[in-house]
């Protein structure tokens, strides 16, 4: 039986797992954005937060993903077997790139623009929303892009804690020494990562192009 025939026989299962995979990535990245962007902006206002928060996110990033999934399992409420544990771990991994790019994006805003904004009489909130966030958007967006692509890869490992997704095919293939199963999980996952990267890159380009368009 050829590999293509093998795929043809299992395409509904592969499609279902791909969908599960996408859902896990989307949920965890969106949650990551909702936590990391406001936190990153808070760091630009309260510099004392920077070291502990970025430090914490950095430490998490150094924990091997399989170990982090394993560590979360015994924890009450947040742990256990299943997608909830996986999502928590994935959100934690998404924090650092988004946080860091948010902070860097805001800090890179031209000082002359900030001086003009202050001199014109903007409140701190107006400066943030009218100047700093719009100008940091490309940087924030590339952080989200990194987090998403990394997330697609990490979700394959989340199958180890029973989260589902394409990783379950890979782990099954490993356990059964069946390279066809392994590829049936790995190839779609790789394609997903490339698609996510390209799609977000396109979105980013449109975002940048639309900046400066006259507002009514």
């Amino acid at each position: 039986m050829s590999f293509l025939e093998f795929l043809a026989g299992r395409w509904t299962e592969i499609l279902g797992l791909t969908l599960e995979h996408v859902v896990l990535v989307v949920i965890s990245t969106v949650a990551g954005v909702l936590i990391a962007v406001p936190l990153g902006l808070a760091i630009t206002r309260i510099p004392a937060l920077g070291r502990p928060v970025l430090g914490f996110a950095g430490v998490i990033q150094t924990v091997p993903s399989l170990a982090l999934f394993g560590l979360l399992i015994p924890l009450p409420f947040i742990g256990g077997i299943g997608s909830r544990t996986a999502i928590i771990a994935l959100v934690l991994y998404a924090l650092l790139p988004i946080l860091r790019n948010t902070v860097t994006g805001v800090r890179q805003v031209d000082p002359a623009i900030l001086d003009a904004a202050n001199g014109m009489g903007m409140t701190d909130w107006q400066r943030l929303t009218l100047v700093e966030v719009p100008l940091a958007l490309p940087s924030i967006f590339s952080g989200i892009r990194i987090a998403t692509v990394v997330g697609v890869g990490l979700v394959t490992i989340a199958a180890a804690v029973g989260a589902g997704g394409l990783g379950s095919l890979i782990f099954r293939g490993l356990a059964m020494l069946d390279s066809r199963l392994l590829f049936a999980g790995a190839i779609p996952s790789a394609i997903l990562a490339l698609l996510a990267d390209a799609g977000l890159a396109m979105l980013e380009a449109r975002l940048v192009a639309s900046r400066g368009a006259p507002t009514p």
Binding site: A112, I113, A116, N118, G121, M122, L135, G212, A213, T215
Partner: peptide
């Protein structure tokens, strides 16, 4: 109040500090 004061005084600087995300008119 600094914000109120600044809105009543025009301010122009060397780097100009125009917002690149807004049109000239804005």
């Amino acid at each position: 109040d600094p914000v109120e004061l600044r809105r009543g005084i025009g301010y122009a600087i060397q780097g100009v500090g125009l917002l690149p995300n807004l049109s000239v008119g804005d």
